[in-house]
């Protein structure tokens, strides 16, 4: 009898693929949020696994125009290389009216709310314009579709911070995008909430059971190309979590390769430091991220 040994990463991969296929089957209007970070890039890779090299789901990125430039460059390069249906949205008014941090007169949380939460909400609902990569022109053109997305795949992990450890794989959001943490539907075995009332949508979380270390181990195993900001490029620093440049600081680290990052995570030096500690908006008020997440932030 041949045995099929599956290690922990194999199981995580298999479960994530199952979730992605379930989402693709059940949601006619589905998209995947791609932040360009390592987690959602792993998720994108898992989609290629699930759909045998294809990504039949549009990828949505919310551009704040404050993203570190390498991120956008990397996004467009990968979008072309992997033939992705790439879409971005943004809060054009807030950016033009400078309702931003630090060069406008708002704090970090309000800036996040404008440039990310609100832009995300209105892009998903189709109220604001979407821009789609035209592969023949190799540039973005206004997207004709204004159809609201009813299934939104996001790369959140349970170990990132407390509120995320309570997420379900398939998590309903009401028409205001808000999340009722106290009263979530049950998930029995591998049966998820794939039915939803008109006007509501479902967030789908294929990476919920992955830890930061699992993500890096998988990146190493599959040789997934990442944006170079995650690695020390000679100045003794690297980013552990990516965001907008005014609010994201790198950590001190010599790790220049995936295996060096895994060693760094495994030796415990970073274990007393939260992964998102370089993300200033989390600390702005007591429950920064929780407040933002109830409001639809990813």
């Amino acid at each position: 009898m041949k045995t099929y040994h599956m290690d922990h990463l194999d199981r995580l991969e298999s479960q994530s693929i199952y979730i992605l296929r379930e989402a693709y089957r059940e949601f006619k209007s589905l998209c995947m949020l791609w932040s360009i970070g390592k987690d959602s890039t792993v998720m994108l890779w898992l989609a290629r696994k699930a759909f045998f090299g294809h990504v039949p789901i549009p990828l949505v990125h919310i551009d704040t125009r404050y993203k570190i430039p390498e991120m956008i460059e990397y996004r467009d390069r990968v979008a072309i290389e992997w033939n992705l249906n790439m879409i971005y949205g943004e809060n054009r008014d807030a950016i033009e009216e400078k309702r931003t941090f630090p060069d406008g007169n708002t704090d970090r949380i309000t800036c996040c709310r404008h440039l990310k939460s609100e832009a995300l909400k209105k892009t998903l609902s189709g109220q604001w314009p979407r821009f789609r990569m035209d592969h023949s022109l190799r540039k973005y053109v206004p997207d004709e579709s204004r159809t609201p997305y009813t299934g939104v795949i996001a790369g959140v992990r349970a170990d990132e911070e407390g509120s995320r450890s309570k997420e379900r794989y398939f998590s309903p959001r009401d028409s205001e995008n808000s999340w009722d943490v106290g009263d979530q539907p049950p998930e029995f075995w591998n049966q998820f909430k794939t039915d939803f009332a008109p006007g509501t949508h479902v967030r789908i979380h294929p990476l919920l059971d992955w830890t930061e270390l699992n993500v890096w181990e998988y990146i190493g195993r599959e040789n997934i190309p990442l944006v170079s900001l995650y690695f020390n490029r000679g100045n003794g620093t690297r980013y552990r979590s990516l965001g907008c440049f005014p609010c994201t600081t790198p950590i001190e680290s010599e790790a220049a390769t995936v295996s060096e990052i895994i060693a760094e995570l495994a030796d415990g030096r970073l274990s007393s430091v939260a992964e998102r500690s370089g993300r200033a908006q989390d600390r702005e008020d007591g429950g920064g991220l929780e407040t933002l997440r109830r409001d639809g932030y990813m």
């Binding site: 290690d7 922990h8 349970a158 170990d159 911070e161 407390g162 509120s163 450890s165 309570k166 943490v181 106290g182 979530q184 059971d209 830890t211 699992n214 007591g286 429950g287 991220l289 929780e290």
Partner: peptide, 26 residues
């Protein structure tokens, strides 16, 4: 650990991760 993670809302099914010499556990 939960307090730090939960930022003040009611705990439901929380997950802890650990690794024995043999394998990973959730």
């Amino acid at each position: 650990l939960k307090d730090e993670q939960s930022q003040g809302i009611t705990i439901d099914t929380a997950r802890c991760f650990f690794r024995s010499d043999f394998r990973d556990y959730i």
